[in-house]
Simulated assay, not measured.
Amino acid sequence: MTPFVLIVEDETSIATLLEYNLKREGFETGLAQDGDMALLMAEERVPDLILLDWMLPKLSGVEVARRLRRKDATKDVPIIMLSARGEEDDRVTGLDIGADDYLVKPFSMPELFARIRALLRRTQANVLSDAVVVGDLEIDTKAHRVARAGEDIHLGPTEFRLLEHFMRRPGQVFSREQLLDAVWGHDVYVEVRTVDVHIGRLRKALKMKDRKDPIRTVRSAGYALRVES
């Protein structure tokens, strides 16, 4: 599954450069141009990693990092702080308030990507691995294989992508719109109710006697994978 990186940057030229290069490297991106927007977007969809500028309108990057670390959903999300402030005291402050890494502007893209990959490997191995196990479910994206309780399950391509998306973020609730973007893509027009049809097919394929439905419906919110199925 493509890692989702939230870019928090108010300078248009830098934000555009980051978006372009991240997408070229295969990452999915979101962009927030101020601190308030960053917190809102991180709440709506928890990122796999955040690139956080120090100097932001409304809320500083330091305050954004503090608030993200107080919330259960985002307390473990890797944060790379980007700043023109290169003094040792500034680096220490950035790391002390919860940033996992600190990069001084201007920086090179190869160095940034090396740090991104290192953090993702260290903190969210599931995002980069071919095989994921959650409860009694196993998925191997390289072999395109799914099993439940050791029994092979045959899924169509869309149901496979749906299950992979859920399994890489177990317990997280996704709205139908978020699932459309993640599984079908931003540029493809598909009716929202199509999600329900494919969720139904996925449930039918995964159904096993004496075992719970692994897909949980969250009323007025969307769907999530049960952490214990």
Results as ranks from 00 to 15, higher is better:
K105Y: 10
A224S: 11
L155E: 02
V8F: 03
G185F: 11
L225K: 02
I7M: 10
K58V: 15
S60I: 04
D10F: 06
D136H: 08
H186P: 01
N126A: 15
D96C: 15
D101H: 11
K58F: 13
A143V: 04
E138R: 13
Q178P: 02
L52C: 08
R201A: 12
H154N: 12
V92R: 09
L59K: 12
P78C: 06
R91W: 12
A131F: 13
L162C: 06
E88N: 14
G94S: 09
R216N: 07
L202Q: 07
E25V: 02
L51T: 09
A15W: 01
D100F: 06
Y223V: 11
P110H: 10
T12H: 07
E44Y: 13
L49E: 02
E111T: 12
R67G: 02
I215C: 00
G156H: 08
R161L: 01
Y223I: 11
E43P: 05
A221C: 14
E228N: 13
V190Y: 09
L40F: 10
P47A: 07
H198F: 09
V127Y: 04
L202V: 11
V104S: 14
R216C: 06
M167I: 09
D210L: 10
R121P: 06
D53V: 04
G171D: 02
F27K: 06
V64H: 15
G30C: 02
R67F: 08
A42F: 05
D130K: 09
G200H: 12
D96G: 14
